[in-house]
């Protein structure tokens, strides 16, 4: 689902529920599941952890992936979307 005013235009291929996970688990889950989407596909992590807002884009920069942007899941929890580049 796509939220209004979101940076995310394309459908997400895989969404990871990390709502209740503390830092740095959301980023660890992201790394674990990167290969579960095709190159060019979108992987999203839903997390309440306030560190994820900084750490997901930082992870993308460090691991040469594309940070697409943030929106919110249906329940209002922040969702961070990544495009797999390799």
């Amino acid at each position: 689902m796509r939220a209004w005013g979101s940076d995310v235009d394309d459908p997400v291929d895989l969404e990871l529920d990390c709502r209740e996970m503390p830092c740095p688990m959301p980023v660890i889950e992201l790394a674990r599941h990167l290969d579960d989407v095709e190159v060019g596909g979108l992987l999203a992590v839903v997390a309440r952890d306030p560190a994820a807002a900084v750490d997901v884009p930082a992870w993308c920069r460090m691991k040469q992936q594309d940070y697409v942007g943030a929106d919110t899941a249906d329940d209002g929890v922040p969702r961070y979307v990544v495009r797999r580049l390799g």
């Binding site: 503390p22 830092c23 740095p24 980023v27 306030p50 560190a51 807002a53 900084v54 750490d55 884009p57 930082a58 992870w59 460090m62």
Partner: peptide, 17 residues
């Protein structure tokens, strides 16, 4: 506070570890 360092956050660098 369970929030990351506002300094690292403002710099946009990894806050964990």
């Amino acid at each position: 506070t369970l929030t990351p360092s506002h300094v690292l956050e403002a710099m946009g660098v990894l806050t964990h570890g």
